[in-house]
Simulated scan of single mutants.
Amino acid sequence: MAVTAEVDVAAMLRDPHDTYARLRELGSVVHVPALQRHLVVGFAACRAVEADQATYSADVGGSGATMARALGATPMLRRDDPRHAQERAPINPGLRARSVRASWAPRFEHNARLQLEVLRGHGPERAELDRDYAAPVAARNLVDLLGLREATPEQMERWSHAFIAGVGNLGDDATIWARCDDAQREVDDHLDALLPHLRRHPDASMTSALVNSGLDEAAVRANVKLTISGGLNEPQHMVTNTVWALSRHPDQRDRVLADPALWPVVFDEALRWLSPIGMYPRETTRATVLDGVELPGGAALGVVIGAANRDPAAFGHPDRFDISRPERAHLGFGSGVHLCPGHWAARIAIGEIAVPLLYAALPGLRTDPRRDEAWSGWVFRGLTTLPVTWDPA
């Protein structure tokens, strides 16, 4: 049986890493009654879960049911193979590294430069990186990737926040459902016009790939909404996380500024150290043993990659941000068949374009300690406010 532990959820929302360290000391799989699930906090155990979808299903109750409610149908993220592979196959070719560089990198740079002028316009005394750059850049990129031609970045941000709140609405809050339903109707209104157009005039967008793949329309709509819910959060937070990390490690910031070839390494280490997607659910399909812990069939699991990515059994000095550490795959984008399909888009759009552009355009870019910053979350975690400054021209 798993060790049982209590956690302070409010403290985890502020900063979960002390809790993660305590749980890892108890075992790689810990039962947490307050969260009504077993938390998988060890690196090897998380990898084992993702390697065996026959035993650890993505088609879960609880948050799986709220995701279907939030998005109007069950998307690929809450399906196992072969259905998961069938729904994912249409978008895979367009999200490979070569395709992203050829089709999307110029647009990503255009969006970043457009928003850079907004950030610069606020000046080094008033600029706030999340509001003025990170969130709008991620939203603009997502509008383009999905081909939602009539949608605005502001709408994309609002829809994403509403869907994420709905997916996590285990308390059945009516206000959250009302916001979520409004977002669902608005996205469906856009798709009502867009899907027939894309059937006649296919393009390079993800929505075009989905609608021309032979999938039923409910699956197309659910997976567009899934991409809206998840495709903004991680890229947005990776902009602010990276700047925050480099501001606290000026020696490593100076290294990458002297050698821009290190930017992909910086992105990967920031993703490991400050995992924006901290946890996702799985459910056992049968009685099993995970890293020595007996689990019954139907057990609700939380795969805590935010904890696994700082597991001392996998990474030396894991609580340090260190771009010199030996290369080892982390779990920032998940793993196995559910590895995030947009990982190359995020790496290129943020790690190779949006963040390097900031440092090239704004000499001395750093966080501004004169103004307050704010973090939030552990299931999804990131900076919600990050004041920045730079050297005057």
Rank of each mutant, 00 (worst) to 15 (best):
residue 297 G to D: 14
residue 175 T to W: 12
residue 146 L to C: 10
residue 184 Q to Y: 10
residue 181 D to T: 09
residue 341 P to T: 09
residue 353 I to Y: 05
residue 225 K to E: 04
residue 281 P to R: 14
residue 293 V to S: 08
residue 226 L to Q: 07
residue 276 P to I: 01
residue 74 T to W: 00
residue 310 R to F: 06
residue 291 D to N: 10
residue 69 R to C: 09
residue 237 H to N: 15
residue 267 F to N: 08
residue 295 L to P: 11
residue 254 D to N: 11
residue 43 F to N: 08
residue 180 C to M: 11
residue 359 Y to S: 06
residue 262 L to A: 14
residue 217 E to C: 07
residue 48 A to K: 08
residue 116 L to P: 00
residue 194 L to T: 02
residue 347 R to V: 06
residue 56 Y to T: 06
residue 201 H to P: 12
residue 249 H to A: 10
residue 198 L to R: 02
residue 294 E to V: 07
residue 289 V to K: 09
residue 388 V to F: 08
residue 241 N to R: 11
residue 369 P to N: 07
residue 155 Q to T: 13
residue 197 H to I: 09
residue 112 A to T: 01
residue 368 D to R: 09
residue 124 P to L: 07
residue 128 E to H: 04
residue 88 R to F: 05
residue 367 T to A: 05
residue 112 A to L: 01
residue 40 V to S: 09
residue 39 L to S: 03
residue 256 V to Y: 04
residue 206 M to I: 15
residue 45 A to D: 12
residue 26 L to V: 05
residue 354 A to P: 00
residue 380 F to W: 13
residue 329 A to H: 09
residue 193 A to K: 12
residue 269 E to W: 04
residue 279 M to S: 08
residue 388 V to T: 07
residue 251 D to W: 15
residue 29 V to K: 02
residue 53 Q to K: 03
residue 327 E to T: 12
residue 251 D to F: 15
residue 140 R to K: 02
residue 108 F to W: 13
residue 99 S to A: 15
residue 201 H to D: 13
residue 347 R to W: 08
residue 29 V to N: 03
residue 153 P to S: 08
residue 298 G to L: 13
residue 96 R to G: 08
residue 186 E to F: 15
residue 271 L to I: 06
residue 357 L to C: 06
residue 280 Y to E: 00
residue 306 G to K: 00
residue 345 A to K: 05
residue 65 A to M: 07
residue 168 G to A: 04
residue 309 N to Y: 02
residue 360 A to E: 12
residue 57 S to F: 06
residue 49 V to T: 14
residue 169 N to P: 01
residue 213 S to C: 09
residue 219 A to Q: 07
residue 241 N to E: 05
